[in-house]
């Protein structure tokens, strides 16, 4: 069973539909017992980092997520919240990954938010994403990015800088783009996570 953490984030329906298309049993839940008991956990996210962290701290979900031992997949803002700090509202995040989250500054014609399909390059450190993903394009919508660090397994370039497209540390996995909206390659990545 895959638990998708329900915490009032925007458009998480798409994640559920992606799991439905793949045909894996899943449940949208905020029940700590169910989340702890799940084989895999998906931590989606669309929203403001600071207000979301406040909600996670108040509901106890922050401590719960930190304590999980099964594979956990953070998506988009979910990935940013697993990092150590975000510039969006200057907030301490869950601290699973030491990487920090910064705001894109528009440079010569590059617009913010970074919205659309961009190339994903796998790093030599990658140990969970299928090799054929390298060089393919995934769908992004974000104004904040994670600077590459020791846990970075894939990168993308925008606004004249390379940022972390995917992360992995111990049982925590993450993607900045929306795999649920990234056509076949996105489905491949979700399957890769479900297979770890």
């Amino acid at each position: 069973m895959v638990a998708v953490i329900d915490y009032n984030a925007g458009n998480i329906r798409s994640v559920l539909y992606a799991l439905e298309r793949i045909g894996v049993e899943h449940e949208l839940t905020s029940d700590p017992a169910k989340i702890r008991a799940a084989d895999k956990v998906i931590f989606p996210g669309v929203g403001h980092a600071a207000s979301t962290m406040k909600h996670l701290n108040e509901t106890g979900l922050a401590d719960l997520i930190r304590s999980l031992t099964q594979p956990v997949f953070g998506v988009c803002v979910g990935m940013q919240l697993l990092c150590s700090h975000s510039e969006e509202g200057d907030v301490e995040c869950l601290g699973i990954f030491p990487e920090r989250v910064h705001q894109f500054r528009p440079t010569n014609g590059d617009k913010v938010p970074h919205m659309g399909w961009n190339e994903v390059k796998l790093a030599p450190t990658n140990d969970w994403v299928s090799k054929e993903v390298d060089g393919d394009f995934c769908y992004y919508v974000h104004s904040y990015y994670v600077e590459p660090g020791p846990d970075t397994v894939a990168t993308t370039t925008y606004c004249g800088r390379e940022f972390a497209a995917m992360l992995r540390k111990d049982n925590f996995y993450a993607a900045q783009f929306h795999p649920e909206k990234s056509a076949k390659v996105g489905e491949r990545i979700i399957r890769d996570f479900l297979a770890v």
Partner: peptide, 8 residues
């Protein structure tokens, strides 16, 4: 649409 399509 959301149920059947995997693009935005």
């Amino acid at each position: 649409i959301a149920r059947h399509l995997n693009i935005p």
